[in-house]
Design a protein around this nucleic acid. Structure first.
Lengths: 101, 101
DNA sequence: AACACTTATCGTGTTTTTACGATAAACTAT
DNA sequence: ATAGTTTATCGTAAAAACACGATAAGTGTT
């Protein structure tokens, strides 16, 4: 295996990170829900999903770390919404992957 | 027997499965490579990637199980290519996720 | 049959993901 | 202060992902 020590391009790494964020149905659900509702509180999402509050919180954290959502504090709640800038970037990167030839 | 109520829709599960297939940079690389080359042998891919042949084989298996690629035997080699039907389906499903509102 | 070539699979160890309950942190209201 | 509400984090355990070397399986050739 004599070839490249340079592993992957930054683009490939980034797209893989976005894809990983989308790789669990609960996170697809959350994103779809936020996209429809524009914004909502954690409690609303917990009510929708068949898992513990702590698990939902963890999925939200992963989506936030991936840059796909963002939260704003509205005491005593926290409101989450799609991060539109990165959302568009992810959209473009997936589109490019499938269109390119 | 009543049908068990699944927590997520079939669509969400399917999209999550496609996303998981794309969630590793090596698999992004492979798909991109196959898309460009139209088709190639396993050896060509192994030469491109900084990992063992057995690891590449495992990534190919995952992509095949996800339905994104397919292989045809051309003794003594095996030629892989994109599964265009599922490729288009994945393209449509990602596009729908990001466009929908 | 024996060999060479190509790729898949096996066995193993390490790391990451996923889920949970319990607890902490931050804020409001009484 | 005390209590109540909301969400994040901690600690843990089970499962899955990932990579590797070694080996098997399949095919063509001699």
């Amino acid at each position: 295996m004599p070839t490249p020590s340079l592993p992957y391009t930054a683009q490939q790494e980034k797209l893989a990170r976005y894809a990983k964020a989308l790789s669990h149905p609960a996170r697809i659900y959350i994103l779809r829900f936020l996209d429809k509702q524009c914004a909502c509180y954690v409690g609303n999402i917990v009510d929708e999903l068949p898992m513990a509050q702590s698990s939902v919180s963890q999925h939200l954290k992963e989506l936030k770390n991936a840059g796909l959502i963002q939260g704003t504090v509205e005491p005593p709640k926290i409101k989450y919404c799609i991060n539109r800038e990165n959302w568009r970037e992810a959209q473009a990167m997936f589109a490019a992957l499938f269109e390119e030839r």
